[in-house]
Computed example of a mutant assay.
Amino acid sequence: MTQITFKQEPVTLLGSPVKVGDTAPDFTVLANDLSEVNLSKYDGKKKLISVVPSIDTGVCDQQTRKFNQEASQEDGVVLTISVDLPFAQKRWCASNGLDNVITLSDHKDLSFGKSYGVIMEELRFLARSVFVLDENNKLVYTEVVPEGTDFPDFEAALNAYKNI
């Protein structure tokens, strides 16, 4: 088990950690309309998966905006995954005027969190992290942020995404 901090308090990560070079594991999450979405929906596209503890917090809001703004010009897809309910994600997108943001909820059974090793056991949130996958679902970049209230390394993640 890996340990990180959240608000300077230690938390334990559960699930199966992934690393660069691995084939990204499949997962099932919910779209804002409650339909199930799997990784295979995005086969043939490069993917930047931005993981946030809760879309309604300042750092998560900024992370979601930054990745969607910076990476949306690329030929691929940017996914934001959290354990927020699909209704909350939909409301956040609408209230912020963001029509092209793809938010997905791992609330139902933590399928994504288990498959990528980013469930914060003590909080039942997903740890702030970023995963970049090529068109064949090979992991080319991973980052689990050591302190959950800090930003990820935007530049490194975006460079990995843009250079696939």
Results as ranks from 00 to 15, higher is better:
D134E: 08
K162H: 12
D43P: 00
L98N: 09
G113A: 08
D134V: 04
A127W: 00
F151W: 07
L133E: 01
L48Y: 06
D26V: 02
L126E: 06
E74W: 01
L98A: 14
N163C: 06
D75F: 03
D150V: 00
V18L: 07
R124E: 14
V78M: 02
P152E: 08
K114A: 08
N163A: 15
L123K: 12
L98Y: 12
L14Q: 13
T103W: 00
N159Y: 07
T103S: 14
L13V: 01
G58A: 12
N96P: 09
N96C: 05
G117K: 04
K90Q: 15
F112V: 00
L126K: 10
S105C: 07
S115P: 01
Q8Y: 12
I102M: 10
G44H: 09
A31L: 06
L126Y: 05
A88W: 01
I119A: 04
S40N: 15
A88D: 07
F67T: 04
L104D: 00
C60Y: 02
I49W: 03
T103Y: 00
V77L: 03
A127C: 09
K66H: 15
Y116K: 03
F154Q: 10
K7E: 14
A31R: 13
P17A: 08
G97K: 10
D75C: 01
E122S: 11
N136S: 14
Y141H: 11
T149Y: 07
K90C: 04
S129W: 02
D150Q: 13
F27L: 08
G58L: 12
K138T: 14
E143N: 11
P86K: 07
P17S: 09
E36M: 09
L34E: 13
N163S: 15
T142S: 14
C60P: 04
G97E: 10
N68W: 04
L30A: 13
D153S: 15
N159Q: 14
R124Q: 15
K114Y: 13
C60W: 00
P86L: 04
N159G: 09
I81E: 00
F154R: 13
Q63I: 11
L85H: 13
K41Y: 13
M120W: 02
P152M: 10
L139Y: 01
A24K: 05
D26Q: 12
A127M: 03
F27D: 06
T5Q: 09
I55F: 08
V29P: 06
Q63P: 01
N163V: 00
I164A: 06
A157P: 09
R91T: 10
S115Q: 15
T12W: 02
G15S: 07
A127G: 07
Q69M: 08
N100P: 05
V78K: 04
A157N: 11
S95R: 14
G44F: 06
Y161G: 05
D22M: 09
V37I: 15
V29F: 05
T80C: 11
Y141P: 06
K7Q: 14
Q73W: 11
H107S: 10
D26S: 14
R65Y: 11
M1C: 08
S105P: 06
H107L: 11
A24T: 05
W92D: 02
K108H: 13
I119N: 05
D99L: 14
N136V: 04
D33R: 10
K19M: 12
N100V: 00
F67I: 04
D56E: 12
R128Q: 11
S111Y: 04
Q73D: 13
V130E: 08
T80A: 09
I49K: 06
T28D: 03
R91A: 10
A157V: 08
T28Q: 12
